[in-house]
Amino acid sequence: MILGSINPAVLLAALMVAATPILLAAIGELVVEKSGVLNLGVEGMMIIGAVTGFVIAVNTSSALVGFIGAALGGMVLSLLFALLTQVLMTNHVASGLALTLFGLGLSALIGQGYVGVTPPRTPKLDLGWLSEIPFLGRALFSHDIMVYLTIALVAGVWLFLSHTRAGMILRAVGENHDAAHALGYHVKRVRTLAIMFGGACAGLGGAYLSLIRVPQWTEGMTVGAGWIALALVVFASWRPWRAMAGAYLFGGVVVLQLNLQAAGVRIPVEYLSMSPYLITIMVLAIISSGKARGSLNAPGSLNRPFHASN
């Protein structure tokens, strides 16, 4: 049996790595959507993060500086989206698409001299005796620092949204922007900040792909990860921990599929590699259907532009 050659501890470890970039982008987008904005430019911000992180990391020989640069890169691009949708009142869907198309082109332009370059290694987090534990040590406690930071970020977002005043304001703006405005909250300011946070997260997710997961720069290397992150937010019904569960589930599919490829299953590689997309679509359909009622949890003002009438 070919599946016997797959080591479950290694599989679990690979799953966490595969899930991290999508989880980063998804947790950022979750906050953005909670504030009532649908930013379809996640793919564009991710790939800009991937390329800026890569270029900066190579030039400074520090992966850490690369990650910071990637967050800034994604944030700058998201500011463009904020300018369009919050100041110039453009259509969210069209602006998000523009962001993705522009980001894909610009990233290819920036990265053209960096194809085939090896980025500096990201240091593994030394967890001492924890990584010595059999099975669990290999599966859970021998990762790079970004995997743990991402989990911390999920916890932070959950804490922020459900237990802080600022999080409550953000949710109010997303649920009913007219009421929030009447209460004196600055709808546009809150949304702009949320968009910037989403951009930084997407940038980090992209850099995780180019600096750790692949680690290389190739044109269009995100291959739909940003869109899968968007689907993940719907899957999670806008709840942070469910986003994490969804990302790990998805990571499992990706890793299993890669392992089947490596094990030489007699299914062409092309069919195996389309499975993550197909499974995402199927899960979306199940979650969105009437019975599961997942879509009922969507923020009330999602994708409705706000313009104060006085």
Partner: peptide, 19 residues
């Protein structure tokens, strides 16, 4: 199923490319 057509139609591009 009330599924978002933006995400599905876009994800199907990647499926089509692999086909």
């Amino acid at each position: 199923f009330n599924t978002n057509e933006i995400l599905v139609s876009l994800l199907l591009v990647y499926v089509a490319e692999r086909i």
